[in-house]
Amino acid sequence: MTRDKAKAKWAVARRMVEITQAEYSSHTVNAKAIKFVKTKLQIAIYYLSQLDEHDSNYTMPFTGKQMKEALKTPITKQNVKDAADWCHQCRLIRDKACTSWS
């Protein structure tokens, strides 16, 4: 898959995890939690798009429904833990696959 096709595939997910100006400016506990969750999901999406660019086969560690649930406010400790776990799983998948990339 080309870089443009991978970007298009993940465009909706990227828009969902964009940090808004209000979230960026706010310093409440919930705003900090949503920024953390969105940042971890941004990183996970980056890893998955890299896998797509290299036509790697992988199993998604989370579904779109799970991602939407993780972004619902108020953000819980479980949402934070899930986002961190998914990011870590995506990095491991990417690291394992990248050994075969030319």
Rank of each mutant, 00 (worst) to 15 (best):
Lys9Phe: 09
Lys68Ser: 02
Asn57Gly: 07
Val37Ser: 08
Ser100Val: 11
Thr63Ile: 02
Thr59Asp: 11
Gln78Val: 06
Arg94Gln: 13
Ala33Gly: 06
Ala13Lys: 08
Lys32Leu: 09
Asp4Gly: 03
Arg94Thr: 00
Lys5Trp: 08
Lys77Ala: 15
Val17Met: 10
Val80Pro: 00
Gln42Thr: 07
Gly64Met: 05
Ser25Phe: 11
Arg15Glu: 12
Ala22Asn: 04
Asn57Asp: 11
Arg14Trp: 09
Leu51Ile: 00
Leu51Tyr: 05
Asp52Pro: 03
Thr63His: 02
Cys90Thr: 14
Met16Val: 03
Cys87Thr: 13
Gln66Lys: 10
Gln50Ser: 07
Lys35Gly: 04
Ile45Gly: 02
Ala97Gly: 08
Ala31Ser: 15
Leu48Arg: 12
Cys87Lys: 15
Lys38Pro: 09
Lys68Leu: 04
Ser49Arg: 14
Thr2Arg: 09
Trp86Arg: 04
Lys9Glu: 12
Cys87Phe: 08
Met60Pro: 09
Ala22Tyr: 06
Glu18Tyr: 08
Gln42Met: 05
Lys32Gly: 10
Arg14Leu: 11
Tyr47Gln: 12
Gln21Asn: 12
Asn30Asp: 15
Gln89Pro: 01
Val29Leu: 13
Val80Ile: 13
Thr99Trp: 08
Pro74Asp: 01
Val12Pro: 00
Ala6Cys: 13
Val37Glu: 02
Trp10Lys: 05
Glu18Val: 14
Lys9Thr: 14
Ile93Gln: 15
Ser49Val: 02
Arg3Gln: 11
Glu23Val: 10
Lys5His: 06
Ser100Pro: 02
Cys98Gly: 13
Leu48Thr: 00
Leu71Thr: 00
Val17Gly: 03
Lys68Glu: 01
Ile75Cys: 06
Met67Lys: 10
